[in-house]
Design a protein around this nucleic acid. Structure first.
Length: 514
RNA sequence: GCCCCCAUCGUCUAGUGGCCCAGGACGUGGCCCUCUCAAGGCCAAAACCGGGGUUCGAAUCCCCGUGGGGGCACCA
């Protein structure tokens, strides 16, 4: 869980030794357990992780579970699993603890109450007794009049005595922030510079709900402060309330962290936000945006990391293939991009192919195993190790290996007569080709590449066939597929007995009356 | 409706006033290699949203449009 800071890349490209002298950053990924981890969240966590690692700082995981209505059982565990799969290990968190815990907001309510009280005492927040019904009504009227929907301030300046009395009587209430009504507030985002808004355009946001639990505007800020977070990386969906957060920090008298609002991900079409919170599970096409779905679809964590790292960040030297340790070296928070990015799955495929090809045969075999198992095919590490070289450069996902190499582990396919007769051949020509190939294998007694290939080519010439035509018929007979890994090496893996049996079967199919 | 953000090939992007008649990557097309499919190599098509400024000079700075996106909850 707490790995040593990664060393320099073993054999990657020479990367600039960036930020080596920067002071340690404390970053945090703070998901709500209301759903699954999607690539947008994963990318935020990645950048948090990279920043912390490259500055020898800490990366924390904090669970923002203050909305009990939206809580999804198991979501926290699911998200942690996804993070771990990606290799984004946190230094402090609900499961591993740490010096500034607890790391689950539902276990910190006392802290939020104290801080809300601090604000109230300082005159920066107040108790509000308005009911949700009334608020909804107010909002409705404002919308009818085309006014910006905002709290009308009914409880903002209640006499102290009245407030005390109502509080004492136990009347339900919330705590609201007393947003200044005049002037402007300037919030500084690392990627965008200063953003100035009229305070009047801000609302008196609720800080503490009537159930006693805080909302984000209180909890996240208090926690970031108390947990010593130096860099707040979050979605740009927070930009509209960013000035409010600055105001709250000011009300507490706290120095602000470095604020970084990450661009959002757009649908592959470029139209609309990739994920509507709480809703969208998948996007157009069959491709999911959920990290664990990507795993199930046969993507490597290395590829997913590489892919999302480059959606909003880049190096100016054209390097595009990175491992996680290389990213730790190369990453630079100042090179983050503020514009929204449309997700591009074909690029994921590309990176996946590249990272699959960097795996050792043993490692590839190991990662392939669950996919064959899921397809109901029994394999052994040894068998997979032998087919790994044959599939490595022709699969884009691990899943595809089952498609292309399933025939190694399955004997139940029966090529149709039509399939056994490629374009330009007759059934009898196919049959003759197979018979000659069978003869060749039998007379050679083994499947050694050079002799067998030479022999098969001679047979093809003899039959006045292109070598490709003979290989093609043989391929169908032996693999059941028109497309397969290189035929001869595949046959070697299968062994003489199976190969002979399959060729005989194919000949049998061709001699059957139509 | 109001507020905010963003704007370079189809997509991800490089570019921080001259090195740019704009570079890379994915994807697409072609060629080479080749027992299929890939992988690999080579080549090609493909963009500075529009209009005004500033400047000797603008993709780069400013303004206005336009387009896209986000937000406007006792959600985060």
């Amino acid at each position: 869980m707490n790995p040593a800071p990664p060393g320099p890349p073993a054999n990657g490209p020479a990367l600039p030794a960036s930020n080596a002298s920067t002071s340690p950053a404390r970053s945090r990924f703070a998901p709500s357990p209301t759903g699954r981890l999607h690539i947008g969240g994963a990318r935020t966590a990645l950048y948090d992780f990279l920043l912390a690692r490259q500055t020898q700082g800490q990366f924390l995981l904090r669970i923002e579970d203050t909305d009990r209505k939206r809580l999804v059982p198991g979501a926290e565990e699911e998200q942690r699993e996804a993070l771990e799969w990606l290799g984004l290990a946190w230094d402090e968190g609900p499961d591993v603890g740490g010096p500034v815990g607890p790391y689950r907001q539902s276990e910190r309510t006392q802290i939020y109450h104290e801080h809300a009280q601090l604000l109230v005492r300082g005159g920066n927040a107040y108790a509000c007794f308005c009911t949700p019904d009334r608020l909804a009504q107010v909002r409705q009227e404002q919308q009818k009049k085309k006014l910006p929907p905002r709290y009308d301030g009914r409880c903002r300046d209640l006499p102290a005595a009245e407030v005390h009395a109502r509080l004492a009587s136990g009347e339900g209430h919330v705590i609201r922030f007393r947003t200044p009504r005049e002037g402007t507030t300037t919030a500084v985002d690392l990627l965008r510079g200063p953003i100035t808004v009229e305070n009047a355009s801000l609302d008196d946001y609720i800080l503490l709900k009537s159930d006693g639990l805080p909302v984000y505007h209180l909890a996240a800020l208090v926690d970031d402060r108390l947990m010593g977070i130096t860099h707040v990386l979050r979605s740009s969906e927070w930009l509209p309330t960013f000035p409010l957060h600055v105001l709250i920090y000011q009300a507490f008298g706290w120095e602000q962290p470095v604020w970084v609002h990450l661009s959002i991900f757009l649908n592959p079409s470029g139209k609309g936000k990739m994920s509507k919170r709480g809703a969208g599970e998948t996007v157009a096409g069959a491709m999911s945006i959920q990290v664990l779905d990507l795993r199930a679809a046969g993507y490597l964590p290395e590829a997913v990391i590489n892919w999302i790292a480059l959606m909003g960040w880049s190096l100016d030297d054209h390097t595009e293939v990175f491992t996680l340790p290389e990213l730790v070296q190369a990453f630079s928070i100042g090179r983050l991009n503020a514009s929204p990015a449309a997700v591009n799955y074909s690029k994921l495929d590309h990176f996946n192919g590249i990272h699959i090809r960097t795996l050792s045969f043993d490692e590839l075999a190991h990662r392939l195993s669950p996919f064959f198992a899921a397809a109901g095919l029994g394999t052994s590490q040894d068998q997979l190790r032998r087919i790994a070289p044959l599939v490595q450069e022709r699969i884009r996902t691990l899943e595809e290996a089952v498609e292309i190499a399933g025939f190694f582990f399955r004997d139940d396919f029966t090529p149709t007569p039509a399939a056994l007769v490629p374009k330009g051949l007759t059934p009898s020509a196919s049959q003759r080709a197979l018979e000659r190939a069978l003869e060749a294998i039998r007379s050679l007694g083994d499947l050694e590449f050079e002799p067998l290939e030479a022999r098969l080519r001679r047979e093809a010439a003899d039959l006045e066939l292109e070598p490709g035509q003979l290989f093609s018929v043989l391929r169908i007979a032996v693999t059941g597929q028109a497309v397969s890994p290189p035929l001869l090496p595949s046959m070697q893996v299968l062994g003489v007995d199976i190969v002979v049996r399959r060729i005989e079967r194919a000949i049998g199919i061709l001699t059957l009356p139509v």
